[in-house]
Simulated assay, not measured.
Amino acid sequence: MWRKFRIIILLLILATVVQEVWLDKADMAWKHNFYVAIYPINADGSDKVGAYLRTLSRDDFEPMAEYFAEEATSYGVGLRRPIEVQLGAVVDELPPEPPGNGSILSTMIWSLKFRFFAWQNSPKVNIRPDIRLYLLYHDPENNRVLGHSTALNKGRIGRVNLFASPAYAKKNLVVTAHELLHTLNATDKYDLQNTLPVYPDGYAEPDKMPLYPQNFAELMGGRIPQNETEADIPKSLKHTVIGEKSAREIGWLR
């Protein structure tokens, strides 16, 4: 009896995996746009961050939707607005933090916890979202450096650490757009040890002569290379592009 029960469970898991793979391939054909729900979170629990969250509107995230529309056009994607952004209600709970040790088992457990969190904390928006991003805002005066943001393509959810200040609004959109692409299968294109973009896929202009300084950052490369050992953080999405490998990963190139 127990053996039959285990077989049923394994078959259900297999069916779920097959369904997710099938749906992912169908989505990556870009016959329909993706609806993204943005859920702000007061990561500090402070009045200052809370006040900042109350100033946020959908218009604050419109430049990100426009950016993806422009980049998609350059790759011949037939959708006028491939990404639509909706601003949801503030979420009071903090999503689980990714594991520090990075072991396969702990990462799998965290992934399941995060997906369960998203299932419990998805305030209703106008259109059911395909992607859910939880934006954890921090007071820049008390947090000089933020923790690493992360996102999952399984479940299409992201946990994004940002600064709660108008001065960081444009840079926040760069980080958010980067994590959004992770939910669509794009991979990082920078060295995890030193954060420098990896040549050539992490460079916006890999064929530029001379190669340095670069004028833009490849979105998944994260920075604008100035020379072999230095790279600048882009000030806004206008200083970034989506490179060919990233475009291929998300289905914009075949």
Rank of each mutant, 00 (worst) to 15 (best):
E84A: 07
Y75I: 04
E70R: 15
G78R: 14
P99Q: 06
F68Y: 11
I109E: 00
V85D: 04
V90D: 03
P96K: 01
K124C: 07
D92L: 12
W110Q: 03
I83K: 09
V85H: 03
I104T: 04
A69P: 02
D60Y: 12
N121C: 07
Y75M: 14
N101T: 14
R128C: 05
Q86A: 02
R80Y: 10
S122T: 13
F114R: 05
W110E: 00
I109A: 13
L94I: 14
L79D: 11
F117G: 02
D59M: 05
A72T: 03
G102H: 11
Y75V: 02
S111D: 06
P82D: 05
L105D: 02
A65C: 12
V91Y: 03
A118K: 04
T73N: 07
S111L: 09
A89D: 12
R81H: 12
F68D: 11
R128E: 04
A65L: 13
S74W: 00
L94M: 15
N121S: 08
S74A: 15
S111K: 15
K124S: 11
Y75F: 15
G102N: 06
L94A: 05
E70H: 14
M64R: 13
L112G: 09
K113C: 01
E93L: 07
Y75H: 07
G100V: 15
I83W: 08
S122N: 09
E71L: 01
A65P: 08
R128G: 01
V77A: 09
G88M: 07
S57K: 15
V91F: 05
N126G: 10
Q120L: 12
E66S: 15
N126S: 13
L87Y: 06
P82H: 08
F117W: 13
I127Y: 00
E84V: 14
T107Q: 02
I127G: 03
F61H: 01
P123R: 11
L79E: 12
P82W: 11
T73F: 09
G100A: 10
P82S: 08
R115V: 00
R80V: 14
F61I: 02
L79G: 09
G100F: 12
T107R: 10
W110N: 00
N101H: 12
T107N: 01
M108C: 09
F117I: 13
F68P: 06
T107H: 03
G76M: 12
G78V: 03
V125G: 00
P123C: 10
A65M: 08
M64K: 06
R58I: 09
A118G: 03
R80W: 03
S106W: 05
Y75N: 12
Q86M: 00
I127V: 13
R80S: 06
G88A: 11
I83S: 05
F114T: 08
A72G: 13
L79R: 15
T107G: 04
K124E: 12
E66P: 09
I109T: 04
S106I: 01
I109Y: 01
E97I: 12
A69T: 02
P99H: 09
A89W: 00
S106C: 05
A118R: 01
Q86G: 01
E70I: 10
E71S: 03
V85R: 04
E97G: 08
V85W: 00
R58H: 13
E84N: 10
S103I: 07
E70M: 13
S106R: 11
Y67Q: 10
